[in-house]
Design a protein around this nucleic acid. Sequence first.
DNA 1: GTGAAAGCGCTAACAA
DNA 2: TTGTTAGCGCTTTCAC
Lengths: 324, 324
Amino acid sequence: MVNIKDVAARANVSVGTVSRVLAKNETVGKELRELVEATIRELNFRPSGVARGLRRSRTDMIGLVIPDITNPFFAELAKHVEASASQAGFSVLLSITNDDPKIELSQIETLLRSYPTGLIVVPTQFGAPAKWQSDIATVAVDRRLKNYPLISVDHYAGAGLAAQHLLQLGHRRIAYIAGPNESPVSRERRKGFLDTLIAAGIQPEVVEGHFDYQSGEVLGKHLLSSPEDVRPTAIATASDQQAIGLMRAASDLDLKVPDNLSIIGFDDIPLANLITPRLTTISQPVEQIAARAVAFVIGENAAGTNAGLLDATLVIRNSTAAPR
Amino acid sequence: MVNIKDVAARANVSVGTVSRVLAKNETVGKELRELVEATIRELNFRPSGVARGLRRSRTDMIGLVIPDITNPFFAELAKHVEASASQAGFSVLLSITNDDPKIELSQIETLLRSYPTGLIVVPTQFGAPAKWQSDIATVAVDRRLKNYPLISVDHYAGAGLAAQHLLQLGHRRIAYIAGPNESPVSRERRKGFLDTLIAAGIQPEVVEGHFDYQSGEVLGKHLLSSPEDVRPTAIATASDQQAIGLMRAASDLDLKVPDNLSIIGFDDIPLANLITPRLTTISQPVEQIAARAVAFVIGENAAGTNAGLLDATLVIRNSTAAPR
DNA sequence: GTGAAAGCGCTAACAA
DNA sequence: TTGTTAGCGCTTTCAC
């Protein structure tokens, strides 16, 4: 492989000069700069990020640690993190924890060996606080992690939006399919939903499961099995995946959505807009979350782009309507 | 940060010995080895992968280059690649090309700066052959890339399986929703499907679009708009996403699946098993593909685990039935 | 504005 | 079996 020395020799300059050109250092004279640039192209010189990283004790990489890349929300997050990162000249090291704290720990230990500039992590939902530590810039996304700054949608307020929407449509028999109670995110969404409803004098039935399709279907069947006069006219879920599972349950029971049942989800995954009927849901600003997380860890967090809670928005589509 | 020298000093051994312990080199005496291991733990020593990489001209990373992480098939692939890689002690550098050859080129150039041990790439579908080059182990997945070994399902035979299934159910008026004709994968699937049908004396109607939900829906509406006596009783698609879009089209036209229309997809994405009705489809051995790709680039390709075409399997679920 | 040179933390070749 | 040491390819002082 051709290295910086080859380039220097070929261009009859010192390696220092080549390095300065690489760094877009302004102090290099115009002629020399152009000569060096030409030589770089001519020799097809590809600077070693590894040597650079060793010297600077920091590579142009950011570690992204997520529980599950097949979850559409995290896939979306990864997509935008990668886009922001590569925009800024950084590579992303992907690590998948499967929501297992043990794996999270060892994965992060491995990541740290590469001297990344920063770490963006969606922590595992359960279990003890992670016990790794390092002094590199770290930000938590979606879920709280120790004292690291958190970038996330406002789950509480977002769920409140969903409740309000159902209320405004005139629903009174409302049920809620929650996520696991051990998950803080799940608790916040649930509380946001319930608080709003209770403030309106309504006490919804709440069932609890996982965030996945399966849970939505199973719990949905349960909720919808009651006699028509007590059966909920609207069900909100803690995730779009649950909502989609719920739709399936409704269809199995010959219930028309939204005629016989209104459904509202949470997350606004791409699929939400593709199923029939299109799902009314609470949208997370994923792209913004990703951009902020990246900006934060690479130190570009200008004032105003700090960590913090971002607003969710209500996206009204075809799965909700007034009760009949 | 504590380094190998600190460990050596603390344990009163040479750095060479520490390095050998790190490398699990058997030639280190038991006592010394244990002493060093204890010291490593005591000092919380985390060896620098960067220094190691520089010295060896190769890091314990593999680059994964895919068009779109939000595509369920690629997400699944990424998941298993990450699992296999971290199993073997490798990190994965994720790169997303958005199916843009320009981006692919620059992303790969960036990846190469990190001296990865290997590259697993799902090349962009269209455009000229990529013009980057390097001497590190590279394998193409799903789609052909120059002369690199290809690991992929047998698209042609897989599509043939779908055709056979429809034939066996008794369908005669069959249509096919293909992927873009510029995509070799798309062409193989289409040819596999058509060849089988034509051999049975049937000439299906073929429409062409993209691999996404949208295309399935739009093209499906078109196919299903013909009068009932000429309308296809079964439609196969080049992807599950198209099949799901097609289901939506059918539902909009009040056609029951599989009573009035049989649908068979391709890929077996997780969602295929969750929608209503569950989708009959051709399953790709994604996990196996990922494992082989990783084994190949890290040089563990023992005889028998070579690159090559893997078998697709027919997964019969509820979206196909005999015509009425 | 440019060159010279030290050194980042490891590995591997060689010596003992 | 263990120690010593050169050097991987860069960046960054320090001179000039």
